[in-house]
Simulated scan of single mutants.
Amino acid sequence: MTVSTDGQAPRTSDPRRARALPTGLGDRVFLGLTGAMAYFVLALLGAAAFSMFWGGRLAFQTFGLGFIYRSDWDAVNHQFGALVPIYGTVVSSGIAILIAVPVSFGIAVFLSEVAPRWLRGPVGAAIELLAAIPSIIYGMWGLFVFVPFMAGRVEPWLNRRLGSAPWIGEVFSGPPIGIGMLTAGIILGIMIIPFISSVMRDVFLAVPPQLKESAVALGATRWEVMQRVSLPYTRTAVIGAIFLGLGRALGETMAVTFVLGNAHDFSKSLLMPGNSIAAAIANEFTEADSPIYLSSLIALGFVLFAVTFIVLAAAKILLLRVDRREASH
């Protein structure tokens, strides 16, 4: 270090100072590249939404907002409405979440808290391999194996036990054909279990052992440790995992197409065939023989995009609220 004789601050001759500028330049370049990639993805998202809206503009111009709440789908008379596919998408995805969340939570708790170390690896890998199975395989298995089981065992039992019950009787009454909303929801639930359970397991394993050991030292049981330590610590990630699975269920196509029935009929019964947005597009896109028919199918794609965006945006808002609440405490 050299000392200045004019009363100014001493200047340093450290060679590391000479390398500060290239390092700063590299950081700025890296920041610019990553920012450009992020904005590029955002632009792609906007372009995809705009292209679907532009492709479906004829349907929106013809039917207006009525396209959203109309239930008729008549390709011969060119009358189209998205209510039945929207209803089928939401109901089947809701059934999937109701099934997948408790099962995924149980798997995650078992693998992170109960199972011995030698068992965690094989079981965890087997569950994650379920996510690698193509959706068309789930659909074929559902059609040839699960549908006969539902038609022969489950749906007749639901008809006998719940078909005449007040309030919920019409939800579980109908012909036991095996194809319908309930079957599609169960198949979807099986498909999204690997996604939710894998994230839950990883975040439960990431809880600091000191927190768990402190709770055990105070006399907490294993369930109390999970309820009062692990879950509060990982609440944000658990909610994110659930909505990740929900987003996967909303956009599923082939598996639902095989077992949903593809009927444009509105029914409260979960045993009746129905339709979903993705299944309607996959089934009828090649059959669109008029501009308004094709535009209505593209408009369905835009509606599915909007529904998924709203769900994921609500998830993000919920996570921000949870983070803000935790920070205030």
Rank of each mutant, 00 (worst) to 15 (best):
N275V: 04
S92C: 10
L218N: 08
P194V: 02
V322C: 00
G81V: 07
I292Y: 05
R28K: 14
A282I: 13
F309N: 15
T221G: 15
M191C: 01
V147G: 01
F258D: 02
R19F: 04
S296M: 13
V207Y: 06
L260G: 04
P291R: 06
A75E: 14
L158S: 07
I239V: 15
F195S: 06
R201E: 13
L158V: 14
Y233Q: 10
V109G: 08
S269E: 12
E284C: 09
L188C: 07
G301L: 00
V225Q: 05
V229I: 11
W141G: 01
I186Q: 05
S164G: 15
A108I: 05
T34R: 04
M191W: 08
I179H: 04
A9I: 10
S296F: 11
H329L: 09
I310H: 11
S328V: 11
A47P: 00
P175G: 01
V114D: 00
I298T: 03
Q61I: 10
F302K: 09
M150K: 09
L231V: 15
L294C: 02
A20H: 01
N159H: 02
G88S: 07
G251I: 09
S92P: 03
S4W: 00
A108R: 00
V29I: 06
E252F: 10
G189F: 11
T34V: 08
A165M: 15
I277Y: 07
A59I: 12
A38V: 08
V84R: 02
A131E: 11
P10F: 12
V145Y: 14
G245A: 09
L297H: 12
P156F: 12
L25E: 01
P156M: 13
N283A: 04
V3S: 04
G64H: 10
H78C: 05
L271Q: 07
V29M: 06
G32S: 08
A82E: 04
A36R: 03
G46F: 15
R325L: 08
K212R: 13
S198P: 04
F305Q: 07
S13N: 07
L130T: 10
P122R: 03
A215V: 12
L182A: 04
R222D: 15
P22Q: 06
G64C: 14
G81F: 12
F243I: 14
D265I: 06
L119V: 14
A100L: 05
P85V: 08
L250P: 03
P208E: 13
A49H: 03
I192D: 01
L320A: 11
N77W: 06
T89M: 00
S269K: 12
F146K: 03
